[in-house]
Amino acid sequence: MRWSDMDAYGHINNVQVVRLLEEARIQAFGPPGGTGAAGQDPPVPLFSSVAAGVQALVVEHRIKYTATLDYRNVPLKIEVWIADLKAASLDIAYRIHDPVTRRVCVLAQTTLAFVHGESGSLLRISAEQKQQLEPYMGPGLFR
């Protein structure tokens, strides 16, 4: 958590929660190919291994705040997994825990799709990508 993530009530601001989800997603699945400089390899290089010109775009975020997430100057615990794999999109689920009390404060899910950057056409999730993600499948949070 960063000091600037806090709102006037001492909680992590809801807009900053979306940024935390993005950071957790990049930590788990890699930055988009061609961005930034070389760094640490992610556990699953889903986004960093797509072909040049392919973009992973956010289709939807769903967020449920189950408790206030108070600012603390210690790292958060964010669980990340694949909740669903469809033909042309995938759902990434998250659970954010308070790092001290360990209570769940946020449940969230992001739907992403791969798109060809120039044409804007939707791309199907390949068999290789599905196989790569299968070990990280878990339950969806919003059904």
Rank of each mutant, 00 (worst) to 15 (best):
H97R: 08
P43F: 05
R102V: 01
T111G: 10
Q132R: 14
L85G: 03
Y65D: 01
I125L: 13
G140Q: 14
W3D: 09
T35G: 07
V104P: 10
A52S: 14
I125G: 02
P135F: 09
S89R: 15
L133S: 07
R143G: 09
G36M: 05
A38D: 13
G117M: 07
V104I: 15
M6W: 07
I12K: 00
A37T: 14
Y136F: 15
G53V: 02
A37V: 08
W3H: 14
A38N: 08
V18S: 06
P139E: 15
V18K: 13
I125H: 05
P31G: 06
V17E: 01
A56N: 05
L57Q: 12
K77C: 10
G36E: 05
E22I: 03
Y9K: 04
M137Y: 10
Q129T: 08
F142M: 02
A88F: 14
D84H: 15
L69C: 02
A127D: 15
R19V: 05
P45M: 01
I96R: 11
E23R: 01
H116L: 14
G120E: 02
V104L: 12
M137F: 00
Q55R: 06
L123D: 13
A113L: 12
I78V: 15
L21Y: 06
S89M: 12
I63K: 03
V44D: 12
R2Q: 03
L69N: 11
Q55G: 13
K64F: 07
A38C: 10
V59Y: 00
Q131H: 07
A28H: 04
Q109T: 12
I78Q: 04
R124E: 15
G140H: 01
A51G: 12
L20V: 12
E60H: 11
L57N: 11
Q109N: 10
Y94P: 00
R62T: 11
Q132F: 09
P42G: 05
Y9W: 10
A38Y: 08
I12S: 03
V17A: 01
E60L: 09
I92V: 13
G117Y: 09
I82A: 10
V44G: 07
I82W: 06
V58G: 09
L112T: 15
T35S: 05
Y65C: 00
M1T: 10
Q131F: 05
S4W: 07
Y71E: 06
L122C: 11
L141M: 08
G34N: 12
M137R: 15
L123N: 04
M137W: 00
P45L: 03
V54T: 14
N14T: 10
M137K: 11
A8T: 11
H61K: 08
E22V: 00
K64L: 11
G138T: 06
Q40M: 09
E23V: 02
F47D: 05
T68W: 11
M6Y: 00
G33C: 04
F114T: 02
D91L: 14
L123A: 02
V18H: 08
H97T: 06
Q16S: 15
A24D: 08
G36F: 05
P99Y: 14
T101R: 10
T110M: 08
